[in-house]
Design a protein around this nucleic acid. Sequence first.
RNA 1: GGUGCCAUAGCCAAGUGGUAAGGCCAGGGUCUGCAAAACCCUCAUCCCCCAGUUCAAAUCUGGGUGGCACCUCCA
Length: 500
Amino acid sequence: MKLYNTLSRTKEEFVPIEPGKVRMYSCGPTVYNFFHIGNARPFIVFDTLRRYLEYRGYSVKFVQNFTDIDDRMIQFSRNEGLTLKEFADRYIAEYWKDAEGLGIHPATVHPRATESIPEIIALIETLVAKGHAYEIDGDVYFSTRSFDGYGKLSHYNLEELESGARIDVDERKRDAVDFALWKAQKPDEPAWDSPWGMGRPGWHIECSAMANQHLGETIDIHSGGLDLIFPHHENEIAQSEAASGEPFARYWLHNGFININNEKMSKSLNNFFTVRDIVQKYDYEVIRFFMLSAHYRSPINFSDDLLEAARNGLDRLYECRDNLRFLLEKAVDIPETLSETGLEANSAAVLENTVSFASDTTNIVETSDFSVYRERFIAVMDDDVNTADGVAVLFDLVRDINTRIAESRKQASTESGTVSPKVLKKALEILMELSSVLGLLAREGDALAVEVEALITQRQTARKEKNWAESDRIRDKLKEMGIELQDTPQGVKWSAGPAK
RNA sequence: GGUGCCAUAGCCAAGUGGUAAGGCCAGGGUCUGCAAAACCCUCAUCCCCCAGUUCAAAUCUGGGUGGCACCUCCA
């Protein structure tokens, strides 16, 4: 498998430190609000990477933190009259709702910064002891120039950074490029005791400390958004490697940004959407599908039209799954002897309510194998997690399945040949196998089903009696309930759609 | 100023040396009591422009044009 490594700016063959095992860390959200779609992209794509690695047989230990202490956390919790913990708890709970909806599996560990204060302090102490950090008035700064490799991830050099600095430099720092590891307490701020007095950790140090705490000194994959390359990830490398003397992470993966209606998403333009906003109109899975239909490193645009197109595309996938399930359900009704011999397939009594299925040996499509799609899927996903191609493989599979079913129906009138349950089952299995790697087709129906089935039975009775008025009345009624019917040769198929 | 990225059909989007995937939209057809939905088929002689390398380029090289991002808390 190849992964694009920001360190080398090339695709590299992925080789984990320990065969069969992958340790990965991804920067999680600062929990001061619902997360927005820009946050959602790394969550979704790196969840997909994690799923894929597991699919390929790796045992993955995945750590994603919650940043629950920073300026915004302090300010917003205060505005709400909540303690820092109460405030964090609230938005972590909201995170889980959205994450679950988006099909993001929980990481192996979700550490909170405030629960790793001892580890953070220990790491800072090590850096001070090794001469990579210094204390001034209760603040502790990292001495950037003391770390030789600084800039190797972002490919910036210190001179450029210094000349390009656009912010006011804290005069107390020895060097403009130094950054805070520990911040002394200001009045009324939450604080923890430390060798430098009461204070709180800086942002960058928490990830170094938690990654080390849960994954060890060197991890396989570290990921996050493009904008984290500098300074966040660059600083993480400096802190971790200055302390341990070992490489921090071997593969650095960064996802591209999301634009809104072709404009940069930003607070100042007031054009950012939370996931919670979007799901008012589109299902969670539409968002996931949309994100995965482009390569994770490409910038993507976000708009209503694009989401609508994604919804329609995803529906096609669901249609195939539901159709296969429907046909399989009908197939179960066939007496075993019939499907064994295929001889009585023309029996009117059987055709009445069930699908006719020929024996496995009499059908040409029987010999076909869907494993070619699995091979193609793996080949494209092995190439830097090309989910856009992965989705394309899914659609090719769907067309293949649909075509076989359609053609066998045509044959059915003359030769009673239709796709056998065995093939349908195989098709459904491969469809679900590949979809689940992408975290798609996870949606299931609800309790509405019983009521709907009853109405459909009533309508079928009316149709049998050629009571079209009654039949249409029931169909309209179902339509009002959001249920659409399809009269197929195998019976009535229904779907609760188009959803969102 | 520094560092990168991108430019493929009406829209979205893969493909990075061997003769243009996939999705949406649109058009045609099949199925059906009617219908809806669904399904199938069709839909880029060509990949921003110019020059070059090559038997062969959307893909490599040089130049140009246009768009974007990071360098500042931000996924």
